[in-house]
Simulated assay, not measured.
Amino acid sequence: MSPGAPVLPVVAVVGPTGSGKSELALHLAERFGGEAVNADSMQFYHGMDIGTAKLSMAERRGIPHHLMDFLSVREDTTVAQFQALARSAIADIQARGKLPILVGGSGLYVRAAVDVLEFPGTDPAIRSRLEAELDAGGLTPLAARLARVDPVSAARINDGKRVVRALEVHELTGRPFSSFMPERDYVQPTVQIGLNGDRAQLHERLAGRVHRMVESGLQEEVAALIPEGLREGRTAQKALGYQQFLRVLDGESTVAAASEETITATRQFARRQITWFRADPRVHWLDWAQPDLYDAAGGLVHDAMEAANRAPGLP
């Protein structure tokens, strides 16, 4: 960014899956001259398009979208690695005089991008041992162990990958994982816009979306990703829809059953997302159905841009 150029804040569009985040981000990008930075951890994967509701190139309407399709389904990334990538993308966008718009519902990834947040290191040996315990004995004993050493994290975490990470951090540092989640403090001027709405309507939206995914070829997409290493990827194979339709391809389920299981799992995931983002008092919530949605969101961005450029000490 050239000297004297306006300070451009980070805009984060957050909320549950199916709430319209991608469309709002596109509108804001067109209105304010912005570029999108993906914070949906499953849209990192190349080839996982239908089941993640990834926008096609045509649907992106010429708006650059960063941090999509940079992993194969065999690979994983850490939140710390994403933090470095996201901040680099944001800095590049701002340096070109564009507005960075972070969009996605992966709560910890959003925090990693916008907040002052420290990430402890990793230990492959500890991680492998804990993952082997998870595979052999399931989540219950590991969750019980976490509850003993870090009850704060245990109350927040309910999936195997994150329980393993929390236990790894405790073994590695002697500190509870929750101690690495400090007070909410933006690393630079930021405005978070949250989308939410009627719960019954959200349930209908999510069911309709899953059915459209199935009709659009979700099962065929899953089948095509198996030779690419979908079964070997610890994260990608567990994505909503993909794990259910892997069982269809294995003859262990039917399309109808997998669809309903995906709908149920997606609704549960949306509920967890709402809980996560509701805990952040800095999020400005808008109803996706309100007639003035775009104007309201645009007003929040306009105010954030003015605030970022206000001289210190002025009201």
Rank of each mutant, 00 (worst) to 15 (best):
M1Q: 11
P3T: 07
A5Y: 14
L8R: 15
P9S: 09
P9Y: 07
V13G: 00
P16I: 05
T17L: 09
G20I: 12
S22E: 09
E23H: 15
H27C: 09
H27A: 12
A29V: 13
A29T: 14
E30T: 08
G33C: 05
G33T: 02
G34A: 07
G34S: 11
N38K: 06
A39H: 10
S41M: 08
Q43H: 05
F44N: 03
Y45C: 07
G47E: 02
K54H: 03
K54M: 13
K54Y: 04
I63M: 13
H65V: 01
H65L: 13
H66P: 02
L67A: 05
L67I: 13
L67C: 10
D69F: 15
L71M: 11
L71P: 03
V73G: 11
E75I: 14
D76K: 15
T78H: 10
T78K: 07
V79F: 10
Q81R: 15
Q81P: 07
Q81E: 12
Q81T: 06
Q81C: 03
L85N: 14
R87W: 06
S88Y: 08
I90G: 03
R96H: 13
G97V: 06
G97I: 11
L102E: 04
G104R: 06
G105W: 11
G107S: 13
L108W: 07
Y109E: 00
V110R: 06
A112G: 08
D115R: 11
F119K: 01
G121D: 02
T122E: 14
P124D: 02
P124T: 06
P124Q: 11
A125I: 11
R127F: 01
R129P: 00
L139N: 04
T140M: 12
A143C: 14
A143E: 04
A144M: 05
L146N: 05
A147R: 15
R148A: 04
V149H: 09
D150E: 01
A155W: 03
R156E: 03
I157H: 13
D159Q: 13
G160R: 15
R162L: 04
R165D: 00
L172P: 07
T173C: 04
G174S: 02
G174Y: 08
S178H: 15
F180D: 01
R184P: 02
P189R: 12
T190C: 06
I193A: 05
L195R: 09
N196I: 04
Q201R: 14
H203C: 03
R205A: 05
G208N: 08
R209K: 07
V210C: 03
R212Q: 06
S216W: 06
G217T: 00
E220H: 05
P227W: 14
E228I: 01
L230G: 10
R231Y: 06
G233E: 07
G241R: 14
Q243M: 04
V248M: 09
E252S: 02
V255G: 01
V255S: 04
A258H: 11
A258S: 06
E261A: 11
T264Q: 15
A265G: 05
F269L: 15
F269K: 15
R271V: 08
I274Q: 09
F277V: 05
A279H: 13
P281L: 15
R282V: 00
W288D: 00
P291M: 07
D292P: 11
D295W: 01
A296Q: 14
L300D: 07
L300W: 02
V301P: 02
H302V: 02
H302G: 10
D303E: 15
E306N: 04
A311L: 09
P315Q: 10
